[in-house]
Computed example of a mutant assay.
Amino acid sequence: MHRNTEPVELEPLTADNLALLLDAAVADADPLEVMPPVDGAPGWNAERKQAFLDFHRGRALLADAPVEYTYLIVVGGRVVGAARLQPGVEGFEAGVWIGRSDRGRGVGRSVAEQLRTVAAEIGARRVVAVTTVDNSAARRLLGTATSTVSGDTVTATSALD
Results as ranks from 00 to 15, higher is better:
G81N: 07
L22M: 03
L72D: 00
G99M: 08
R84N: 10
N45M: 07
A94K: 03
L21H: 02
V34E: 02
A25L: 08
R84Q: 08
V26G: 11
E47M: 11
N4F: 00
D28E: 11
A25Q: 02
D54G: 08
G81Y: 00
M1P: 01
P37W: 04
E9L: 13
P87C: 15
V67K: 03
N45Q: 15
Y69F: 15
A60W: 03
Y71D: 14
F55D: 10
D16Y: 04
G40T: 12
T14H: 04
L18W: 08
D54V: 10
E93S: 15
L10S: 01
L13Y: 06
D39Q: 12
E47V: 15
N17W: 11
P7Q: 01
L61K: 12
V67P: 06
A83V: 09
P42L: 12
R48W: 07
A46K: 14
G99Y: 01
F55Y: 15
L13A: 09
V89K: 06
R59Y: 01
N45R: 12
T14A: 08
A82M: 10
D16A: 15
A60E: 05
A27Y: 10
T14G: 11
G40M: 14
A41D: 15
A41F: 11
E9G: 03
K49H: 10
A29I: 03
V89N: 04
L10Q: 04
G40V: 07
D54Q: 15
V79I: 02
Q86K: 15
V67L: 12
A41C: 09
L61F: 10
K49Y: 05
G77E: 11
G58D: 12
A19N: 07
V74P: 01
A27S: 15
V74A: 11
D54A: 14
G95H: 09
E68V: 09
G76N: 10
D64Q: 14
E90G: 03
